[in-house]
Amino acid sequence: MNYNKKVVVITGASSGIGEQSAEKFAQLHAIVILVSRNEEKLQQISSRLSKYQTTILVYACDISKKDQVDKMAKFVIEKFGSVDVLVNNAGFGIYDTVEKIKVEEMESQMSTNFFGMMYCIKAFLPKMLEKRSGHIVNVASVAGSVGIPGMASYCASKFAMLGFSESLYHELKGTGVGITVVSPIMVRTNFFDHVSFGKMPRYSSTSLDPKTVANAIIKASSSPRLEIVVPQFVRFVIWLKQTLPYIINPIIGGIFRRSLKSKI
């Protein structure tokens, strides 16, 4: 796909996967709209990406707030008419048991990770359908297919994202608009900086560089597939879990329960 002058909106663009994805699209001379709550950080990234001689715009927005998303989308649509690629990347996790986590913390994860995605899709999809082109990339996680002790709310938000995306994937057949989910394993970003992760080891030997996930997002933005798992071999683990749950679930559960106990 030729991304020159294509309009790309990226949420959660102030760090990690979102920041790296913005740079990849900028390198391809796309028009990139950086969306995040942290305007100062977005401005810094915008200045850094200016070397690619393409249009970079900054819009401070809390995507968990529908009114803010609507204003952001209105600004983008009035300026460009529509978007070619929407990357729903914003999200965060809190590590704690269902017994101990606050209801407000559970709600906040769903509000950003799931409802924020939904607000953005609802805001941009009509114009995509009108012009019969465009692609939505939802950044989920392998935690959207595997329940992890201590991450129930986060997993719920990503399970919801995957189910929503699959339903929408079928609805969009023949419209010219596509949707693809990118589901990575652990990524080396500030995701684990949240105080709830305590002294847990931040990364494993299999954790990914955010640039790797950004490359998958570029691929996903013109892919006919519903889901791209990163790295690809993890899809086999998901398949095993879904096919032989009575064998795989005890193994996965045991591994993560030990990690949870080490936190406590």
Rank of each mutant, 00 (worst) to 15 (best):
I136S: 06
V98N: 09
E130N: 10
K74Y: 13
M72W: 09
M110T: 06
E107A: 13
I63H: 01
G116W: 09
M118D: 15
M117N: 15
F114H: 04
G91R: 14
S108C: 14
S141I: 07
V137H: 04
G81E: 02
S165M: 08
I121H: 02
N113R: 05
D67S: 10
G116K: 07
D70E: 05
K100W: 01
G134M: 03
V142T: 12
G81Q: 01
S153M: 13
L168M: 09
F115N: 12
I63N: 01
D67N: 12
S145M: 05
K71W: 00
I77V: 13
Y95N: 02
Q68P: 15
S82L: 09
L162Q: 14
A60R: 11
G93T: 14
E105T: 02
S108I: 14
E99G: 04
V58I: 02
S82N: 15
C155S: 15
A160G: 15
I94P: 04
K66W: 00
V87D: 06
L57H: 05
V87E: 05
G91Y: 13
F80M: 12
E104N: 07
V76A: 13
C61K: 00
Q68A: 14
G81F: 01
V85E: 08
V98M: 14
D84Q: 09
F124A: 05
C61T: 01
A156Y: 04
M110K: 01
M118T: 15
S153H: 11
E130I: 00
Y154L: 07
M118I: 15
F92I: 01
S82G: 11
F124C: 04
M110P: 08
M106K: 03
F124L: 06
S157A: 10
K79D: 12
E105C: 10
V87T: 05
G93H: 13
A123F: 10
A143R: 05
H135K: 07
K158D: 07
T97A: 12
Y95W: 12
P126I: 04
E105I: 03
K131V: 07
S157Q: 09
V76W: 11
V137Y: 02
E78H: 08
A73Q: 13
L125E: 12
D62P: 01
M128Q: 06
K66H: 00
V85A: 08
M161Q: 12
M118E: 15
V83S: 09
L129R: 03
D70P: 02
Q109P: 09
E99T: 11
Y119W: 09
M72V: 07
T97P: 14
V83G: 11
E166S: 08
N89D: 11
S157N: 10
I136M: 05
F114A: 03
N88H: 15
E99M: 12
K102A: 12
I101F: 08
K100N: 07
G91D: 13
N89S: 11
K122G: 06
D70R: 05
G150I: 01
V142L: 10
Y95E: 03
G144V: 10
V87L: 05
Y119G: 04
I94N: 05
L86I: 08
V69T: 08
G144W: 11
F75E: 09
V103T: 14
Y119Q: 03
G134Y: 01
F164H: 13
D70V: 04
